[in-house]
């Protein structure tokens, strides 16, 4: 086996290793997406004092698999006079960027697929490309509801992307690097050194903009089932619809992971370093993958929590929040942070 491996040409071996790494990232991600849908139904169920799905498998644990099978076997209906090619390209365009962004996410110190310097920019660029899937779906469906949903979504994403970009600029200024691994390493030194404290308003702006960017409640006017049926994916059925669904949940997990990395110290442990030498529990209290997953899971839970708690925003309120509240807040904070960085004010920006 090793002989066969070494006999391969160098370039081919690199490609194989990269492909294996991609699989190692995507398979757990897809499983997480499947079980996020289950978690959503269960958690919102409990919040509304009902049980949620509990029939398929023990305690309902096989529900996501049953859902996936059902969607696989459903017929994909193509509307008449729709743009056939764009109709099928749209879901792929919305899933592609949300998966590709995972290439630069560090799961643990050094556990990253592509350790590039401009990681933060790369993530921002890819999340902004995701809107094409929605716009094209709305246009290609040849349906007024889909088009209205697409227009709303496009306007909303463009608005919140600016606030999000400015929030990322704040993180970049605090860390002095665009590399996500370096950003986490810049937060070393315990709970109070994580960027949520020095960048508290920015953390709020970023996470709320993230919820808006993923078109989740309370910002889900692009779906708006009470007025435009289901928005941009009203004409999609079967697997084509499932791909949109996958993209939405993969994006939610991505935003949660990014929030954990940029503001909550990624894989860093909240406990002092000396605790990691304790017998038995030392390994758990030390830095590691489990902290990153735990933090990501918490923010993912917040997405579901919001959905069960807040009524949907009105469209003009969404626009007001994005343009007139978030962008000024981030601009002021960038200015203050610039001053702090220039004057080297401790403990903020040394």
């Amino acid at each position: 086996m090793t002989e066969l491996w070494t006999s391969l040409p160098e370039d081919l071996r690199t490609v194989v290793v990269i492909l294996l790494k991609i699989v190692a990232v995507l398979v757990p991600l897809m499983t997480a997406v499947a079980y996020t849908t289950f978690a959503e139904r269960k958690i919102i169920g409990y919040m509304q004092v009902r049980l949620g799905p509990n029939r398929v498998g023990p305690k309902g644990w096989l529900q996501p698999i049953a859902d996936a099978l059902k969607l696989l076997f459903k017929e994909v209906v193509v509307p008449t006079q729709s743009d056939r090619y764009l109709f099928f390209i749209a879901p792929i365009l919305s899933l592609g960027p949300s998966l590709a962004a995972w290439a630069v996410i560090p799961f643990n110190d050094g556990w990253v697929l592509a350790d590039i310097d401009a990681g933060l920019l790369y993530v921002l660029a890819l999340t902004s490309v995701g809107v094409y899937g929605i716009i094209i779906a709305g246009w290609a469906s040849n349906s007024k509801y889909a088009l209205l949903g697409a227009m709303r979504s496009a306007a909303q994403i463009v608005a919140y992307e600016i606030a999000m970009g400015f929030a990322l600029v704040c993180v970049l200024m605090a860390a002095g690097s665009l590399n996500l691994g370096d950003i986490v390493r810049g937060q070393q030194g315990g709970l109070l050194h994580w960027y949520w404290l020095p960048l508290l308003p920015i953390f709020g702006v970023y996470f709320i903009s993230g919820v808006a960017e993923t078109n989740r409640a309370p910002f889900d006017v692009a779906e708006g089932e009470s007025e435009i049926v289901a928005g941009f994916h009203v004409e999609y059925s079967g697997m084509a619809f499932a791909v949109f669904f996958l993209a939405e949940y993969a994006n939610m997990i991505l935003i949660s992971a990014l929030t954990a990395l940029m503001f909550w110290g990624g894989w860093l442990s909240p406990f002092p370093e000396s605790w990691s030498h304790w017998p038995m529990v030392g390994g758990v209290l030390d830095d590691g993958l489990h902290w990153f997953l735990l933090k990501t899971a918490f923010f993912l839970f917040c997405f579901l929590w919001f959905r069960a708690t807040f009524p949907r925003y009105r469209y003009d309120q969404i626009m007001r929040l994005g343009w007139k509240v978030f962008i000024p807040v981030t601009l002021v904070w960038i200015f203050l942070e610039g001053v702090a960085v220039a004057l080297k004010i401790e403990p903020w920006f040394a």
Binding site: L121, A125, Y132, I135, A154, I157, E161
Partner: peptide, 17 residues
């Protein structure tokens, strides 16, 4: 990456709009 971010992510979205 800035080309993707600015032109693809913002300018062309408005064009398409």
């Amino acid at each position: 990456i800035t080309l993707v971010l600015v032109y693809v992510g913002a300018v062309m979205v408005l064009f398409l709009f």
